[in-house]
Computed example of a mutant assay.
Amino acid sequence: MDFPLKAAIELTAAQARVRAMTAEEMLELIRGLNARLGDVRPKAGPPVDAAPLDPRKAVREKSIVCLESGRPFRVLTRRHLAKYGLTPEQYRAKWGYPADTPLVCKALQRERRKKMREMKLWEKRGK
């Protein structure tokens, strides 16, 4: 069930608990609320008048904002970038990131670095 219809039913049920309503009144209220709530729902995608995000500010502590979609992620995956016809290498080049920049948030980058240091993969393992 989509959001406007579910919200309209819940609002009508709350109204029916407060005052006596006929079945026709409830149906009319549900139809009216569903139509009005459907009009209020925001359209998909980033706002048209929004200024593009600065690539230097896109990499944050707990998220990295995709400059193509405007949505925040912890990791910009190859699969997400493919929706926009880009590989990670093309994305970095398009937005001016160095080729070795990981497309992950700072916290996850730090966590991975710490784990690699603990594993010490560069040392030979003893018997």
Rank of each mutant, 00 (worst) to 15 (best):
D2P: 03
F3M: 13
F3S: 10
F3G: 07
P4G: 03
P4H: 03
L5D: 02
L5F: 09
A7M: 13
A8C: 04
E10K: 15
L11N: 08
T12H: 01
A14S: 13
A14M: 09
R19N: 11
A20L: 13
A23P: 01
E24Q: 12
M26C: 14
L27D: 13
L27F: 10
E28T: 13
L29S: 06
I30H: 01
R31E: 14
G32Y: 10
G32W: 09
G32A: 13
L33C: 06
A35W: 07
A35C: 09
A35I: 10
R36F: 14
L37N: 01
D39C: 11
D39K: 14
R41C: 12
R41G: 07
R41T: 11
A44M: 10
A44I: 05
A44H: 08
A44R: 12
G45H: 05
P46S: 11
P46K: 15
P46M: 09
P47F: 06
P47C: 06
V48F: 10
D49A: 14
A51W: 08
P52F: 04
P52L: 06
A58N: 03
V59L: 09
V65E: 03
V65C: 04
V65P: 00
V65I: 14
S69A: 07
L76N: 00
T77I: 05
H80C: 02
H80R: 04
G85F: 01
T87W: 03
P88D: 03
Q90T: 04
Q90A: 15
R92H: 02
R92V: 01
A93I: 03
A93S: 09
W95F: 15
W95Y: 15
W95D: 00
W95L: 02
Y97L: 05
P98A: 09
A99H: 09
A99C: 06
D100R: 09
T101I: 06
P102Q: 05
P102W: 03
L103M: 07
L103W: 00
V104K: 04
L108F: 11
L108P: 00
Q109A: 10
Q109P: 02
Q109R: 11
E111I: 05
R112A: 15
R113S: 12
R113H: 13
R117P: 01
E118I: 05
E123L: 15
K124E: 14
G126Q: 14
